[in-house]
Design a binder for these strands. Structure first.
Lengths: 243, 243
DNA sequence: AAGTGGTCTAGACCACGAC
DNA sequence: TCGTGGTCTAGACCACTTA
């Protein structure tokens, strides 16, 4: 029997405050209500409010000044991501004020390469599924992304039509696994030649290359991701709180 | 363990646990003592312990499993940074198991360019100080970094000898300012030609380019940073907790 | 059933900034 | 001085995993 815990109060408050900030109900640079005001408004304890404000602060959305108050970061509009959301390409594009869309390019079963086998903790040659997708910003190619999943993790075969799902949703639907953490490598590479899927617009230029391996709570590798970013279309601009 | 008061209890516990993990007193993959055990050992409340464990978890150092326990991430050795420490180049190199050193290259006063003036919130042509430094990994050039500070922020003139200080220390010593947050842009660029300071080993190759503007709590720009990374010497490998 | 982490509260006291 | 955020506690109850 699966009894679900009601949504945590802190999460609800988090969503509400985030929405108010992003929709400019609290204007950039303005002062938020004090902790005690918020706690009476939402009917929760001050501790709960504080835990929410702490995460908003660490995402760089708000700035807290002891003895003064809490303020909306006036520069959130200049960014499209915080460090935790580096690989949420769809949102990245949306946050850059472009219309985002995903174009699934191919979906093939093939044996794992040596490197992939090492990353995914499987035997070289074991079957994997490779999904290649193109993320578009206003119909313009922005990010070419490739995911590799061990076939053994898949409950049912993936359909190409599901290539528009977010990685999180894909993993839930086909593997019933959850991501606990990721290890990310940042590289700078020249656009590879003779790569069929690479859009013309990216050819011959230096591209940002993000390589990720996702793990579950047991530290078992789930998926790898490799992406090539055209910074001239969607530059990566992150906020990061200090301290 | 005896804890003294001036420093926040949570900070002291944080340091202690971090050290135990990094020095493998708690082995990778092993289970940590429970929250209540830790709270009696350190003589602090469970809430304090929990706030510490929460930050360790968000840095990807530990994994928490409800109903089971808290475990050291077995892959921390494979990384050299967490997302919050992207620009701490010295530590980055050290964490990559290289001997890190800083070679100050130049320190010049000059008028601000248009772009810099915009970033720093000053008038174009206003005087700025530019510090160029090379970060070495085992004597090998790894990162070329350039910082630009408005001269008006400086209390006393910077000496080139202080070029080995970390950015944080530099700002404290010369400006008495503290960084509250930063906005970071990630780019991929070809090594610029005809740049005197660029080491031979980086020439003609695609390089990772990190551009940062640091702000204080009042959202006033303090410094800009621009760096070129040779990924073949020190690859950027980060852990990131999910959720 | 026992033990672990997850959520939440009420309240105390401190440190700092603005007025 | 007053209000704000910063620190910390003690304790209640819940949900989950393991045995």
């Amino acid at each position: 029997m699966l009894l679900r815990r009601p949504r945590a109060l802190a999460d609800q408050v988090n969503d509400a405050l985030r929405a108010r900030i992003l929709q400019k109900q609290y204007a950039p640079g303005s002062r938020l209500p004090s902790e005690s005001e918020l706690s009476t408004e939402f009917g929760v304890s001050r501790a709960t409010i504080r835990s929410v404000l702490a995460t908003l602060a660490s995402d760089g959305l708000i700035l807290r000044k002891q003895g003064d108050g809490t303020f909306v970061n006036e520069r959130i509009d200049e960014t499209n991501a915080h460090l935790g959301g580096l690989w949420e390409f769809y949102r990245l594009i949306e946050n850059s004020r472009h219309k985002a869309s995903i174009k699934p390019l191919s979906l093939v079963r093939r044996p794992a390469t040596l490197v992939e086998a090492g990353q995914l903790g499987i035997v070289p040659g074991e079957e994997v599924l490779q999904l290649t997708r193109l993320f578009l910003a206003d119909q313009q190619p922005a990010i070419l992304a490739e995911n590799v999943i061990p076939a053994s993790l898949l409950g049912q075969p993936i359909e190409l039509a599901d290539g528009t799902l977010h990685l999180k949703q894909l993993l839930l639907k086909y593997c019933e696994r959850e991501i606990a953490y990721a290890i990310i490598e940042l590289h700078s590479v020249m656009a590879p030649e003779g790569m069929a899927e690479l859009p013309q617009s990216m050819a011959g230029r230096p591209l940002l290359n993000v390589r990720i391996v996702f793990y579950d709570k047991e530290s078992h590798p789930l998926v790898t991701g490799t992406s090539l970013h055209d910074n001239s279309v969607v530059p990566l601009r992150l906020v990061q709180a200090w301290g």
